[in-house]
């Protein structure tokens, strides 16, 4: 248990919708080991993104515990919270919405280096160049504006920004869903390579079981604010036991001629 990088227990969050309270999260439990990729899958509205937001402390849960690196994440305040954020990073679906649209690539990557005091001012240009190279981009891109680069390049910049602070866990919320299929495969390979080099753990939020199959060590299936099933991808996809997992497997697009599951 103590070997877990992240452990979530009894996580509960209620929102009010149309004057009525409803539970977005209703007692969620799971854990992620160092270097592990846990995929969190489920239909829209199942609570996947609320889990991510609670872990990132963007939303305060009503009940439950989140432990990260042995610390109670929900108790952290001020400087301790800020220093934790360096080790727990995030990449969202749409980098154009997540970034300042007027910033250059260099400025975007410079921010975490500066805020978390990763590199001195004089060292930062070299640090930015090396981060761009690590995510497979030319350092020449540093002077470009976010809107001048392609969607795939933007998501690589988001990854460079996330790894700038040497995190131990990155929360990826539908991070490859908006990418062209050919670009998506390359970004997934990049994530896998970074994981192998740095021992990063990923919480990979998606509704796409094909992506899960390609990247996940373990899968947790969510529905209506609860984890309804957890297991290895081969088990969840090959022999789903919950109704939700069965529905997700049945709905996954298959190439004509391979519908024999």
């Amino acid at each position: 248990m103590s070997a877990d990088l992240l452990s979530v227990s009894g996580l509960t969050k209620r929102f009010s919708r149309g004057g009525k309270a409803f539970a977005a999260l209703d007692g969620v439990d799971f854990a992620i080991a160092p270097g592990e990729t846990l995929a969190l899958v489920g239909p829209s509205g199942s609570g996947k993104s609320t889990v991510a937001r609670c872990i990132l402390r963007l939303v305060e849960p009503d009940a439950g515990k989140i432990r990260f690196e042995g610390q109670d994440l929900l108790d952290l305040r001020g400087a301790a919270l800020r220093s934790m954020r360096a080790r727990l990073q995030m990449v969202f679906q749409d980098p154009l919405a997540a970034f300042n649209p007027r910033a250059t690539v260099a400025r975007l990557i410079n921010d975490p280096l500066r805020i978390h005091d990763v590199a001195r001012r004089a060292e930062r240009p070299a640090a930015i160049a090396s981060l761009l190279e690590r995510v497979g981009l030319s350092p020449d891109l540093a002077t470009r504006h976010v809107h001048e680069i392609s969607g795939g390049q933007r998501q690589r910049v988001a990854i460079a920004r996330a790894i700038a602070t040497k995190p131990r866990l990155i929360v990826l919320d539908e991070a490859v869903s908006a990418l062209d299929v050919s670009v998506r495969a390359d970004v997934l390979k990049l994530l896998k390579a970074l994981q192998d080099e740095d021992g990063l753990a990923y919480l990979f939020i998606t509704h796409d079981l094909g992506v899960v199959r390609a990247v996940a060590d373990r899968v947790a299936v969510m529905d209506a604010g609860r984890i309804v099933e957890q297991g290895a991808p081969s088990q969840i996809i090959g022999a789903p036991s919950s109704a939700t997992a069965r529905a997700l497997v049945a709905a996954a697009p298959r190439l004509l001629g391979s519908e024999t599951v």
Binding site: V181, S182, R184, A185, D208, L209, G210, V211, V212, R213, A214, P233, S234, I237, V249, A252, R254, L255, S258, T260, V261
Partner: peptide, 8 residues
Amino acid sequence: AHLGIDAH
């Protein structure tokens, strides 16, 4: 590039 669930 299609990531099928059946591959494995």
